[in-house]
Simulated scan of single mutants.
Amino acid sequence: MKFTAYLAGEIHTSWREELTEKAKALDLPLEFVGPMTDHDRSDNIGELVMGLQSNAIAKDEAASQINNLRTQLLIKQSDLVIALFGEQYKQWNTAMDASAAITLQKPLILIRPEKLHHPLKELSNKANVTVENVNQALKVLSYVLE
């Protein structure tokens, strides 16, 4: 049986590629989906669909409607969510995606460095498992999918 994992988290580092490659090397029965990682496409999709917007706020609103639809559909279709909180970027979208997973009763693995324990303590308490790095998440997945 193959499982689908939604990879929530910042889009500016290669953590998704690292996790995907390592999962493949371990022969884990997983396929991965996630947010649009092309930042410009994500920011501009509203105008690409609905035409030029009147200002930056309207542009953001148009894009967020489509991006939220994408996220909702992909999380609903996923078997689990892996949400990575890194130290470098603000993580509002990651928190929103992790909360959506909890609301939809999707299993959630939270990856966050120890340094972020305090600001994420409530979210971590609601996750099924909290780990500090991608390798630990893969160990959890390997065990669960044995």
Rank of each mutant, 00 (worst) to 15 (best):
P113Q: 09
L110E: 07
Q77T: 04
L120F: 05
D97H: 13
L116I: 00
H117F: 12
L116T: 02
H117C: 03
E61T: 08
A100V: 10
I66G: 07
L116E: 13
I102F: 05
H117W: 08
L69D: 12
K90T: 06
E114Y: 05
I102H: 07
Q65S: 11
G86W: 05
H117P: 00
N67H: 02
K126I: 00
S124C: 01
S64N: 13
I75C: 06
L69P: 00
A83L: 03
E122R: 08
Q91D: 14
E114G: 01
G86V: 02
L80F: 09
R112H: 13
P113N: 06
N68T: 13
D79Q: 03
L80K: 04
A101N: 09
T71A: 13
L104T: 01
P119H: 09
L116Y: 02
L80V: 01
A83M: 06
T103F: 11
Q77K: 15
I66Y: 06
I82L: 14
A100I: 12
L120P: 00
I75G: 06
L110I: 10
A62N: 05
D79C: 02
S64G: 00
A83T: 03
A100Y: 12
P119E: 08
K106S: 09
I102V: 15
L116P: 00
I111G: 06
T103L: 12
Q65V: 11
D97N: 14
V81P: 04
L84T: 01
S124R: 01
K126S: 14
W92V: 04
P113Y: 04
